[in-house]
Write a protein that binds this DNA or RNA. Structure first.
Lengths: 206, 206
DNA sequence: ACCTGAACACCGTTCAAGT
DNA sequence: ACCTGAACACCGTTCAAGT
């Protein structure tokens, strides 16, 4: 039995789920092409072939579109990490994760302010935000598994403690921000990535 | 001789420089109180006791107000680092830097998107943006000096290379973002700060 | 010479009106 | 039942009009 949800419904007007998908694709494309300033509801509606009013049938507000994109971004990143080889150890694993992390950060990084307002208030009760928190947990778990397995392969002993994975995540976010916003303008990207992967590895090694 | 610049001039209407200062103070206060959403030109004008039109005599646009605040934030951070004690070594130094970094990041972090657009385009020619780049260099130099001196005190050998300080900066920005946006919700802040300070230190130790 | 605030072209969001 | 787009209350920015 196919469940009939609010957004999985066909009608003479077309497939509601397909339209939701198209709205998200349009938003992502606008974000990639023109940056945050290009992402307006009117532009999304025109690009997705729908109307401004209808977008609010699928998303509570513009905020909610961000949350959905952020969620997809985290799912993709988790899948990417899951399929990475562990055989070369922790540092090469991280070196492979950083560019993907930066790629996601370039689209999604600006949404941090939005996220903060969402989680700081009662909006945490929203289904979309609760889903996002669950996805973040999965991403963290996938990263932890990969790091632990890679350390195991090379016989590296990791420092214990609940802050280990949050530190790695912070490091990934920090270097992604540096790369995306070109903070280290006098430094080759590849060199920063390589150094960071090895430095984080030293940082979590007992 | 006091130089008479565009923004250092008295008149029957008052002190232009004082008004510029008041505009920045109003903007900072609004940002701290109500977040990004509360920062509107109309609100800044009302709070600073001026008018929307006059704000554009001191700042090219809203963008330019951000850049000025970011610049002041970097100057304050550089001064804070300059006066920190080195005698306890690198990890305690970083542990003292992180909360200050997070404090600045909470106000200024959301401006990253703005910064990116500024530096990515021709706007880099703007005087305010060139000033910001120079301030960033000074902040970096101050941090490097503090880290090198602290390592010297405890006889710690640092890894060489141009990526060392950018890695530390990335790490500080990453952990600040984690703290400000409460990404590590199940983890005590003090524990994350302490772990991060020690892990970054291990990361840059040869 | 300096300052104001109505006016302009947008924006996110809503909802009466259409199909 | 579903969809549209004019309308509303904003926003950043400008500039004719005031002092």
């Amino acid at each position: 039995m196919t469940p009939v949800s609010e957004t999985n419904r066909r009608s003479v007007y077309g497939d509601a789920e397909a339209r939701r998908r198209g709205t998200l694709d349009a938003a992502a494309a606008l974000l990639d092409e023109g940056g945050y300033g290009a992402l307006t509801i009117r532009a999304v509606a025109e690009r997705a072939g729908t109307s401004t009013g209808l977008i609010y049938k699928y998303f509570a507000d513009k905020h909610d579109i961000f949350v959905a994109l952020l969620n997809e971004s985290q799912v993709e990143s988790a899948q990417f990490i899951a399929q990475l080889p562990r055989v070369d150890g922790v540092a090469p694993l991280l070196e492979a994760v950083i560019p993907e992390s930066a790629r996601q950060w370039s689209r999604v990084g600006r949404m941090t302010a939005v996220w903060r307002e969402a989680v700081g208030s009662q909006q945490i009760e929203r289904a979309s935000v609760r889903e996002l928190l669950a996805t973040a947990e999965q991403y963290n778990a996938e990263l932890e598994r990969a790091v632990v397995e890679a350390a195991d392969v090379e016989g590296r002993e990791l420092v214990a403690g609940p802050a280990m994975i949050p530190f790695v995540l912070s490091g990934l976010r920090g270097v992604s921000d540096t790369l995306v916003n070109n903070w280290a303008r006098h430094l080759d990207s590849a060199e920063l990535i390589s150094f960071t992967a090895r430095a984080i590895t030293r940082g979590i090694t007992a």
